[in-house]
Each structure stands twice: as C-alpha cells, then as structure tokens.
Amino acid sequence: MTDRTRLRDLTGPEIAARAAHEVLFLPLGSIEQHGPHLPVDTDTHIAERFAAAVCARVGGLVAPGYAYGSRSRPISGGGERFPGTVSLSAATHSALVNDLVVNYARHGHRRIVLVNGHFENTAPAVEGVDLALERGADARVLMVNWWEVIGADALDRIFAGDFPGWEAEHAGIVETSLMMHLDPTRVHTDAISPLTVEITPPPYTVLPERPGLVDPSGVLRTAHGSSAAIGEAIFEGAADAIAAVVRTEFGVAGGVER
C-alpha cells in the first residue's frame, strides 16, 4: 500500500503539488556500533521513526534519509575502532546536507526539518544548511536532535528522578528502551550486562584514536533497566515536543498553514 506521507512513494507531479504547502522531514542517522545488544542502524532507525511520527502529528512528507553519519567519537559514540562503525568525514556529511537542501528547495520545498539521531551529525549538518542557504536555497530549515527537546520534568517523571544523564547515552537505557519499543525483535536482551562499564571515555579528544579509550563492550554505561515502557514514554514525549517546535517555527497545525 502506498504511504502518502513517504516522498519515495509519490510521483513527481504529486510531489510538485504538495512541496510548497507541506513540511518536509529528512531523517539523519548513522551506521555505528551500539554494543552487543543493538543493531548498527539504531540511530538511523530511531530518526526515521521520529520523522514519521512527527509527520503524522503535523502533516507533511518524509524524505528518504541516509544511513551514514559523521565520524563516531569515543566520548559520545564509542569511536571508530569498533567493527560495524562506518562513518563519513564531517566535510562529506556537510556536503550531502548542502546538496539535499539545495535540491529540495529547488523543487519548491520551503520548510525542511532535519530529524537527527546521531550526535556527531549536529555540527556538519548545520554547516551544510548554512552553505545551502549561501548558495541561494529558498527554504527555512529546522535542525532537531530528538534528545534535546525532552524536558527535564518529563525525564524526572519517566525515570522517577534517577535519569542517568545524556553523557551516558550511547546504547544505554534510553536508546535501548526506544528500540525495545520500536523494534523489539532486533534487541538482544540476553546480551545486556547488569554491570556498569569499567572504562569511562576521557573528557577530551586524543588523535589518532588509541585503544583503551572506551569500554570493550562499546557501551558508555550499562543498559540494564531498559524497558519498552520507558521507550514508549520517551518516544511519545519527544515526538510531541518536536511537533510543537515545528508548529511554532513553521506555523502549521495538523499540516495546514496558519
């Protein structure tokens, strides 16, 4: 069945009729190891699901994203030494965003939302948007990291005041819980260790990346205690928050311009 919100399912004339009137959502992800219990496309899958959920709330179109993200760093993603992590340079990632924004704007898309699921994408993606605007792209672009829109009060409620902190979140409780909610058959729950990781990445960058900066598991802190219920609460709360931001910045309500 054709999904009328998925740009890839539409014809050129159908897209042309909707481009100027609807918000375009572009998910950004990564192919990056997420410990022994989550698939390497975790960031991509979560970004795609958020893009679809927000689109369902405010209306619009979801563009095909791309799976590869900017280079993983030990302090935030485990780094590049783990098998399964395949990354783009910041310059390449920025150039991809640049070209995508220019091309979508050229075809009449005036409101574009980048829904990001990978921390290291943030700066290169913003740079790509800036370059696209300098090239004359006639569009307004909103960049959203899904984890940044969840309020502290919501986290306190979900975690009963014991949220472990975003600095611990790579294949930790939040991402694992989200995947338990969104795609439970791909979560290897038997591989989740109840033990806290033995190595915490240092609060600085050393290059070239050397062994021993990250726990051998590739996890920054244990995912023990994750659940589908936590994942559902985070997903629904973040999707609602992103939708509110889109309405505020782009003046839409249920997909209709105010």
Rank of each mutant, 00 (worst) to 15 (best):
E175H: 04
R106L: 14
G79Q: 00
A137C: 02
S217H: 04
G79M: 00
A253Y: 07
D215A: 09
L155I: 02
V115T: 11
R247Y: 03
V246K: 07
P201K: 12
G251Q: 02
H224A: 15
H224C: 07
P39Q: 09
R221M: 14
W147R: 14
S193P: 07
A139F: 11
L88P: 08
G231I: 02
L24R: 11
G172L: 07
V206G: 08
D162A: 14
A16V: 14
L26I: 15
E48L: 14
A53W: 05
N116M: 07
E198V: 10
T11S: 15
P203E: 10
A47H: 03
R49C: 14
L114F: 14
V187N: 01
G237T: 07
P64S: 07
A228D: 05
V126G: 09
P124S: 10
N98P: 05
H37T: 07
H181S: 07
S227Q: 01
E169Y: 05
P36Y: 06
A51F: 08
I15A: 13
I192Y: 07
F163N: 06
E198Y: 02
W147A: 09
F250V: 07
S177R: 00
I192M: 11
A56F: 01
G172N: 04
M143E: 14
I192D: 04
E14Y: 02
V97N: 05
V187S: 09
S217V: 04
L26D: 13
S217N: 03
L213C: 06
A67K: 10
N121L: 12
R81N: 00
A168K: 12
S30G: 03
T200S: 10
A17V: 06
C55K: 09
T122V: 15
N116Y: 09
L142I: 03
R8E: 13
M143L: 15
V144W: 08
A168V: 01
P36Q: 03
M180G: 01
S70C: 08
V149T: 04
I230C: 07
A19E: 01
A191D: 14
L7A: 15
D130G: 03
F82Q: 00
L26K: 03
W147E: 10
R258N: 06
A19R: 05
G172D: 10
L195R: 13
I150T: 11
H170K: 06
E32Q: 02
L61W: 07
L131T: 01
S72D: 01
G225D: 02
L100D: 15
P83W: 02
C55N: 06
I150F: 06
A123W: 04
I234L: 15
R57M: 02
V214G: 01
S94Y: 05
R18D: 09
R186K: 12
D3Q: 06
D215G: 03
L100C: 11
A52H: 15
M180S: 02
A90T: 02
R57F: 01
H181M: 05
I15H: 03
F50Y: 15
A123D: 14
Y68D: 08
H34M: 08
R57C: 00
V126E: 13
L114S: 12
T205F: 12
Y204G: 12
A16Y: 11
A168E: 14
S30R: 00
A132I: 00
A56L: 10
G255R: 01
G231T: 05
W166G: 13
N103F: 04
A123M: 13
T122Y: 14
G79S: 00
E169L: 12
G218C: 09
L114Y: 03
